[in-house]
Simulated scan of single mutants.
Amino acid sequence: MIALGCDHGGYGLMQDVIKHLEERGMEYKNYGCYSEESVDYPVYAKKVAHAVADGECERGILICGTGIGISITANKVPGIRAALCGDCFSAQATREHNDANILAMGARVTGPGLALKIVDTFLDTPFSNDERHIRRIKMIEE
């Protein structure tokens, strides 16, 4: 199950992501927001981060205008490793090396075509389980 959350700036791109996940037959839970009416991104970042940290959802996707604020907020929740990605290489590397559990994107920075490729890369790339990466993740969590 994928936890989804966005603010008003990410709402349009999130609709594209939702359609894409449905086409892939992937289950998701939408934590909002539900329109382009102005909202505060920390509310939705925290809902998604807690859903992932508590094990309700395996991974999350967060979208705001830049992806910056929403990723900063998510990373304040213990156990969350949210990565702001604007390209497929970063999405692949953060899954393989950091076992990132939330993808953050900026709707005003990344167009929908590329964003959907980033989503696929993030969701389809497994963690490497290399000892050096496990060690580094433990260091992050200390």
Score class of each variant (00 low, 15 high):
38 S>D: 13
76 K>I: 11
33 C>A: 13
9 G>K: 10
68 I>Q: 13
71 S>M: 08
61 I>N: 03
19 K>E: 14
38 S>P: 04
30 N>R: 08
23 E>Y: 00
6 C>M: 12
8 H>C: 10
77 V>Q: 14
37 E>R: 10
17 V>S: 13
26 M>W: 01
21 L>I: 05
26 M>Q: 09
58 E>A: 03
31 Y>T: 06
29 K>P: 06
60 G>K: 07
13 L>M: 15
55 G>P: 12
73 T>L: 00
70 I>P: 01
55 G>W: 07
65 G>E: 11
60 G>H: 08
65 G>Y: 09
72 I>S: 07
30 N>T: 09
8 H>Y: 11
38 S>M: 12
15 Q>A: 03
45 A>D: 04
34 Y>K: 04
52 V>E: 06
4 L>F: 09
22 E>S: 10
64 C>V: 05
9 G>T: 12
60 G>N: 11
23 E>P: 06
39 V>Y: 00
41 Y>N: 08
28 Y>R: 00
77 V>T: 15
22 E>T: 07
22 E>W: 03
36 E>A: 12
17 V>K: 12
60 G>T: 09
54 D>N: 15
15 Q>Y: 00
62 L>G: 02
38 S>G: 11
71 S>P: 08
6 C>P: 08
4 L>N: 08
37 E>S: 10
64 C>G: 08
21 L>V: 03
36 E>V: 10
77 V>N: 12
24 R>G: 03
60 G>Y: 07
14 M>N: 11
60 G>L: 10
42 P>E: 07
50 H>S: 07
65 G>D: 10
74 A>C: 08
48 V>N: 02
73 T>K: 06
67 G>F: 05
23 E>N: 14
13 L>H: 10
42 P>L: 06
70 I>R: 00
15 Q>K: 12
68 I>F: 14
55 G>R: 12
27 E>Q: 13
42 P>W: 07
6 C>G: 11
71 S>V: 08
37 E>Y: 01
66 T>H: 10
77 V>D: 13
38 S>W: 05
57 C>Q: 05
20 H>C: 11
20 H>A: 07
20 H>F: 15
23 E>H: 12
6 C>K: 09
35 S>M: 06
53 A>W: 02
17 V>L: 13
40 D>V: 07
64 C>I: 05
50 H>Y: 14
35 S>G: 07
28 Y>W: 14
24 R>E: 09
53 A>G: 04
63 I>W: 04
7 D>Q: 01
4 L>G: 06
27 E>C: 01
49 A>K: 05
61 I>H: 03
71 S>N: 10
46 K>N: 06
11 Y>L: 08
65 G>I: 11
73 T>C: 09
8 H>T: 11
28 Y>E: 02
54 D>R: 12
29 K>G: 10
18 I>Q: 14
27 E>R: 00
32 G>K: 05
18 I>R: 15
73 T>V: 13
52 V>I: 11
15 Q>I: 00
41 Y>W: 13
22 E>C: 02
56 E>L: 10
72 I>H: 05
16 D>V: 01
